[in-house]
Amino acid sequence: MRYLVTGASGGFGGYALDWLLKIAPDDDIVGLVRNPDKAGDVESKGAEARIGDYSDIDSLTRSFEGIDRLLFVSGAPGNRQQEHTNVVEAAKKCGISFIAYTSFAHADLVHNMLSEDHVFTEAKIVQSGIAHTFLRNNWYLENETTLLKHALETGQLVYMAGEATVGWALKREYAEAAARVLIAGNQPKVMELSANPTRYSELAQALEAATGKAIDAVDMDETQFAEALRDEVPEPAIQGMIGTQQLIAHGDLEVQSSDFALALGHSLVGLEDAVKELVRSRHLL
């Protein structure tokens, strides 16, 4: 059985590759990288490196030869639907028997700026006839790095989401779940990977407990939120953060599910410890 992880030199793919190397024979593991200069990063870990670009179906077809199971890490927004189509078509052509795809929380139930491409890709995988599990990832705690850094500098965790909840977990935990599902190959077709639903006010409490710094949770309107971040964050990034806050406020990340622990085979890190790990790894203090 041979396994391939796409985006193996990236954050998520790199974590997943690390986990696969812990739980499967090194000779069975392949990491796909777009940049040939990154091949050494994969090979230094003990996996085989192959070069392939989502925009180049021929490179994908070459890279997928001899692969049984594929961990398909979603690409960056832009031309994602065509690029994802290339991945699925190459997988079909090469006889890949199983795809684990990193999708979005409740992808088939919500309609937002992030879900459309994932709905499209899920449909492509279903149409291909390849056995699959859609890993509907909720929200990486790392996505909140800017807000947490701002909170530690100002004493205020600012947000626009009201009482809406998010299923925050560390990226490495989502990646471990993906690696374990890839190895198992017999999980449900859809897994909603979400930690316990948590409000921003509770995230502020976790940050305070993790760091010993007094943190107030401050729910703002759009104008106030943008103004609070303007000195630290470029305007386009602020607008992206506002869009994210709006979809959270709408309830798009409010998920109740036990699938995460099922995929991992163990419980998730508690929120305070997860925040402490993030603060330390990102040098926020």
Results as ranks from 00 to 15, higher is better:
residue 2 R to T: 14
residue 4 L to S: 08
residue 4 L to I: 15
residue 5 V to C: 09
residue 7 G to F: 11
residue 8 A to M: 10
residue 15 Y to L: 11
residue 17 L to H: 11
residue 17 L to T: 12
residue 18 D to R: 11
residue 19 W to E: 15
residue 21 L to P: 04
residue 21 L to D: 06
residue 29 I to C: 06
residue 33 V to P: 13
residue 35 N to R: 15
residue 37 D to T: 14
residue 37 D to W: 05
residue 41 D to H: 11
residue 42 V to I: 15
residue 44 S to N: 12
residue 45 K to A: 12
residue 48 E to R: 14
residue 51 I to G: 06
residue 51 I to H: 04
residue 53 D to R: 00
residue 57 I to V: 13
residue 60 L to C: 12
residue 60 L to Q: 07
residue 61 T to M: 12
residue 61 T to W: 12
residue 63 S to H: 08
residue 67 I to V: 15
residue 67 I to A: 08
residue 68 D to L: 04
residue 68 D to W: 05
residue 68 D to K: 04
residue 69 R to H: 09
residue 70 L to M: 05
residue 74 S to C: 13
residue 75 G to A: 11
residue 85 T to G: 13
residue 85 T to K: 13
residue 86 N to D: 10
residue 90 A to T: 06
residue 92 K to P: 00
residue 95 G to A: 00
residue 95 G to C: 05
residue 102 T to V: 13
residue 103 S to T: 04
residue 106 H to M: 14
residue 108 D to A: 11
residue 110 V to M: 05
residue 113 M to E: 04
residue 123 A to S: 09
residue 127 Q to V: 05
residue 128 S to M: 08
residue 136 R to T: 10
residue 137 N to Q: 05
residue 140 Y to D: 10
residue 141 L to M: 14
residue 145 T to P: 01
residue 148 L to C: 06
residue 151 A to T: 02
residue 163 E to S: 11
residue 163 E to H: 08
residue 170 L to T: 14
residue 174 Y to T: 04
residue 175 A to S: 13
residue 175 A to I: 14
residue 178 A to L: 02
residue 180 R to F: 13
residue 182 L to Q: 07
residue 183 I to H: 10
residue 183 I to W: 08
residue 185 G to R: 03
residue 187 Q to L: 12
residue 187 Q to C: 05
residue 188 P to N: 05
residue 191 M to T: 02
residue 192 E to Y: 02
residue 193 L to K: 09
residue 193 L to T: 12
residue 194 S to G: 13
residue 197 P to Q: 02
residue 197 P to H: 02
residue 198 T to E: 08
residue 200 Y to L: 06
residue 202 E to L: 04
residue 206 A to S: 07
residue 206 A to Y: 02
residue 208 E to K: 07
residue 210 A to L: 01
residue 216 D to S: 13
residue 217 A to F: 09
residue 222 E to T: 12
residue 231 D to G: 04
residue 235 E to H: 03
residue 241 M to D: 00
residue 243 G to Q: 06
residue 246 Q to S: 09
residue 249 A to G: 14
residue 255 V to D: 10
residue 256 Q to V: 10
residue 257 S to Y: 01
residue 258 S to H: 13
residue 258 S to D: 15
residue 259 D to E: 10
residue 259 D to M: 07
residue 261 A to M: 03
residue 263 A to I: 06
residue 265 G to F: 13
residue 266 H to S: 14
residue 267 S to C: 03
residue 268 L to V: 05
residue 268 L to G: 00
residue 270 G to E: 13
residue 274 A to G: 10
residue 275 V to I: 07
residue 275 V to Y: 03
residue 281 S to G: 04
residue 283 H to R: 03
residue 284 L to R: 00
residue 284 L to I: 02
residue 284 L to A: 01
residue 285 L to V: 12
